[in-house]
């Protein structure tokens, strides 16, 4: 993919990130200013500066919209960075947590943990999701590697589809066997930011932090790895260790995103590809810009989820799927 890479020196080198942050702030402000209930901007500002728990409009801004916006930023950034890393390491333009089975792996593990064993400790859900995502990733990799020709982009995608279908069927079986219990997970399984409270961050923020720190730390080496294992080895990199670190980052980011909002597909596909159009293939730029663009993307998508059919809200995950599926098809035609 050719790209008009952003300048790395001079005034433009810091104007672009500053502009990105301004766009993020604008999207964040837009997110908390609009919703099913029309609230004047003056009241929005008043809610933020002089919160009164007895005023419903203030409750809407501070207790409903603000945590949701923060979670949208974190989930969007996590999934976009996870997708970017996966695409770089596997050299697969279609790689992202949803397509390669990590989202359904994490979701399946949470469903079993919460629905079957009736264990709903919020502290353990990110760990359970991480184990599920890791197991799914290993299964997808194992199936693809065993296929004739090895783990090519095509076999990885097909393995991911098989694991997604299989675990999706198990989730459906579980929900059919115990409709009453799984009714509580119904909305979460569609990928939703509605009703999520900020306190979930206590348990997911450590995972998010670990994932993002690793991602930013290995970004330079991922650029070399994206050119091929031989190139990376030639540059003196320990490829096995690097891949393990990337896997840890991807699993941590996916698990925290799933623990917060359930499976939200295609974010990790759409955002990194859009980012590469502007910054090129250097993962020192792709990773931070994916984080920023992922946050902005999910904020805007969530605004659409809340406004398109207002006062009814649709799950944010349904909107990401509606937007992501055509891009997936285009990528299959153009890049696979």
């Amino acid at each position: 993919m050719t790209a008009a890479a952003l300048p790395r020196h001079g005034v433009a080198a810091w104007v672009a990130p500053l502009g990105g942050l301004v766009v993020l702030c604008l999207a964040f402000g837009w997110h908390i200013a609009v919703g099913a209930k029309t609230i004047p901007l003056g009241t929005v500002a008043e809610a933020l500066l002089a919160y009164d728990a007895g005023v419903f409009d203030h409750v809407v801004i501070v207790d409903l919209r603000l945590p949701r916006a923060v979670l949208a930023v974190l989930v969007g950034a996590s999934l976009a960075v996870a997708g970017a890393l996966m695409q770089g390491v596997t050299r697969n333009p279609l790689a992202e947590p949803g397509i390669l089975g990590l989202l359904i792996g994490a979701s399946f593990a949470v469903v079993v943990f919460v629905g079957v064993f009736d264990l709903a400790s919020p502290a353990l859900i990110p760990l359970v999701a991480a184990l599920g995502a890791l197991a799914a990733a290993m299964a997808v990799w194992g199936i693809a590697t065993a296929a004739p020709g090895g783990a090519t982009p095509l076999t990885l995608v097909l393995s991911g589809a098989a694991i997604t279908a299989f675990l999706g069927a198990l989730v459906t079986v579980a929900t059919l066997l115990d409709e009453q219990t799984f009714e509580e997970l119904r909305v979460w399984l569609t990928g939703s930011l509605a009703g999520r409270r900020g306190d979930i961050l206590v348990w997911t923020l450590p995972w998010l932090t670990v994932g993002l720190v690793i991602a930013f730390g290995v970004a330079r080496q991922v650029t070399a790895l994206a050119m091929g294992d031989e190139t990376a080895v030639g540059l003196g990199m320990r490829v096995g260790r690097l891949k393990a670190l990337v896997l840890l980052a991807v699993v941590a980011l996916t698990a925290s995103a799933v623990a917060i909002a359930g499976p939200m597909g295609f974010v990790g596909l759409v955002v990194p590809h859009a980012v590469r159009l502007f910054v090129g293939q250097d993962y020192r730029l792709v990773v931070p810009w994916s984080a920023l663009a992922g946050a902005i993307y999910l904020l805007v998508v969530d605004i659409a989820a809340r406004l398109v059919l207002a006062p009814i809200e649709i799950s944010t995950g349904l909107v990401t799927a509606l937007l992501g599926a055509p891009i997936f098809v285009w990528l299959v035609r153009a890049r696979l």
């Binding site: 919703g35 419903f56 809407v60 509605a194 809340r306 006062p311 009814i312 809200e313």
Partner: peptide, 10 residues
């Protein structure tokens, strides 16, 4: 029946 956003509670 209809589903409504929590913001419409009042």
């Amino acid at each position: 029946w209809s589903e409504f956003s929590a913001e419409t509670l009042p």
